[in-house]
Amino acid sequence: MAANIFGRYVWLIEQFRRYDRLTYEEVNDHWHKCGLSYGDEDDLALRTFHNHRKAIFDIFEVEIACDIKGGYKYYISNPEELENDNLRIWLIDSYTAMNQIQADRKLKGRIIFENVPSGHKWLNVITDAMRNNQVLHITHHGFGKPESWSFDIEPYYLKVVKRRWYVLARSPYYSELNRKKNSEKGGNRPENVYMVYALDRILDCQTTNATFHMQEDFDINEYFRGCCGIIHSEEKPIKVIIKAYGGGSDYLRTLPLHESQRELDERKDDEASYFELEVCPTYDLYQSLLAQADQIEVIEPESVRKQMRNFAKNLMSYYKE
Rank of each mutant, 00 (worst) to 15 (best):
L87Q: 08
G247K: 00
M195L: 14
P256A: 05
D269L: 05
G142P: 04
Q307M: 14
D152K: 12
V27G: 10
I296M: 11
I230R: 10
Y173F: 10
F16V: 07
F151K: 00
T48W: 10
R88T: 14
I138P: 14
T96I: 05
R309W: 11
W122H: 15
I101V: 15
K33V: 02
A272H: 04
Y9W: 15
L168P: 03
Q287A: 12
D269K: 06
I238D: 11
S77H: 13
N99F: 13
I13P: 08
R21E: 14
K54Y: 13
G7M: 06
S303W: 00
E259G: 14
I138V: 15
W165D: 08
W122T: 04
P117W: 05
L36E: 01
V167K: 00
N182M: 09
G35C: 08
Y156L: 14
E41I: 04
Q307W: 11
G226N: 04
E300D: 11
L107I: 08
L36T: 00
G187V: 11
E154D: 08
G246W: 08
Y223I: 02
K121V: 01
N28L: 04
L107K: 06
S233C: 10
Y75H: 13
H232G: 02
I101Y: 01
I220G: 03
R21Y: 13
V196I: 10
D43Q: 12
A312G: 15
N86K: 12
K185W: 00
R267L: 15
Y173K: 14
P190M: 05
E278L: 12
P237C: 06
L123K: 11
K108L: 13
Y318W: 11
Y75Q: 09
Y251S: 13
A129D: 09
Q287L: 15
V298N: 07
G35I: 05
S175T: 02
Y286S: 06
P281R: 01
V240M: 13
M316L: 15
R225F: 00
N115G: 04
F212A: 08
Q102A: 14
D250L: 11
V62P: 03
D284A: 10
S183F: 11
I126K: 07
M1V: 02
K121S: 01
S77V: 02
I238P: 06
L199G: 07
F60W: 15
Q134W: 03
G119M: 06
Q292V: 00
R163F: 02
E63G: 03
E14Q: 12
L290D: 08
L168W: 05
T139F: 03
N132S: 09
R105D: 10
Y197S: 05
T254I: 00
G187R: 10
G119I: 01
Y74A: 03
C280M: 00
L36C: 02
